[in-house]
């Protein structure tokens, strides 16, 4: 019951947060100087008025806001000025599967590979392989996706011609590999560093000595006593990692010309397509809030100390 009320409480806060974001973003975009039709310099005032009427921009702002919220509750994010024949909701429905797939794949790879590298380095502490893995990780943290991706393209796409340079094609695995790797690499490096530090700290804890004194085989000491404790900092880093993958995906989708949300978002931002930008920000914010809630729940499940006293 405590868990349920915790989830409900967090969900209420999340909903409120999203409402605040919608409101702030809505008024920010509507009150801003310049609108989506500013690019066409010599727009006839009559045509302009017509366009504004089509998009409901001639109404008082309060009414526009109420309409937007009403439509939002029904799952309709309004029209897009960049793609006039399709609504924002439709565009999101198109882009979401692509973004979701590369995002989740990158996150899974980052966690698995990062933890494996960190554990490996910790178990080989102060040996040359440790220094090597951690050196690469230090570099990886400093390499943003927009630097990694072009180089990977050059190597695997152009010189070796193993993988497509860009595009989604039929959505087959070949088209995912480079975007997912570019997206995952900085997080792999960060998680590897974090895991190594946590492993070393845990290995020197008193309870590890107790476990060894019990005569447990080393494998069991590591798997049952060390890892669950060492994984906690990694779990709390997952929130920022998810945010990093989300933002990274905007850049990676741009580089590899993938038809995902990030690409629509950048197109929308360049064209001042407020409906599209607003819709995608709401979606990303909701996803991030939801995933952070899941991370918090996982943390509580892994660390009994946080469960009591709440």
């Amino acid at each position: 019951m405590r868990l349920l009320s915790f989830i409900l409480g967090r969900a209420a806060v999340a909903l409120l947060t999203i409402l605040v974001i919608v409101t702030a973003a809505f008024f920010l975009t509507r009150l801003a100087p310049g609108g989506p039709f500013d690019a066409e310099v010599d727009l006839d005032p009559l045509v302009r008025a017509n366009l504004e009427r089509t998009y409901g921009l001639d109404q008082p702002i309060g009414i526009q806001y109420r309409r937007y919220l009403g439509a939002l509750a029904a799952g309709d994010l309004g029209p897009s000025t960049t793609y006039p024949d399709r609504g924002v909701s439709e565009l999101i429905a198109d882009g979401l599967p692509v973004s979701l797939r590369i995002g989740l794949a990158a996150l899974a790879i980052a966690t698995a590979a990062g933890m494996a590298a960190g554990i490996f380095a910790a178990r080989n502490r102060n040996r040359p392989v440790d220094a090597l893995v951690m050196g690469v990780a230090s570099l990886g943290v400093a390499l943003p996706a927009f630097v990694v991706a072009p180089f990977l393209t050059l190597l695997f796409g152009i010189y070796l011609s193993w993988l497509p340079v860009a595009g989604w094609g039929d959505g087959s695995l070949r088209h995912w590999v480079l975007p997912v790797v570019s997206l995952a690499l900085p997080q792999v490096a960060a998680i590897a560093r974090l895991t190594r530090g946590a492993m070393l700290e845990t290995l020197s804890a008193d309870f590890v000595r107790t476990a060894r004194a019990k005569g447990l085989p080393e494998r069991r000491v590591i798997s049952a006593h060390v890892l669950p404790a060492a994984v906690l900092p990694v779990v709390s880093y997952l929130g920022p990692a998810i945010a990093g993958v989300l933002t990274g995906s905007v850049i990676v989708e741009q580089i590899f010309a993938l038809p995902g949300l990030g690409r629509f978002f950048v197109q929308g931002a360049i064209n001042r397509d407020y409906g599209l930008v607003l819709g995608i920000v709401i979606l990303y914010a909701s996803a991030l809030i939801l995933l952070n809630l899941l991370v918090d729940l996982a943390y509580g499940w892994l660390d009994p100390r946080t469960r009591t006293g709440r």
Partner: peptide, 25 residues
């Protein structure tokens, strides 16, 4: 072989500390 002895033929008790027992078990 030492693992087989520790905890079985030879028991060990350390000074109590908050982290002396595994916190998540």
């Amino acid at each position: 072989r030492l693992q087989g002895l520790r905890g079985d033929r030879i028991g060990l008790v350390f000074q109590d500390s908050i982290t002396g027992l595994t916190p998540h078990m």
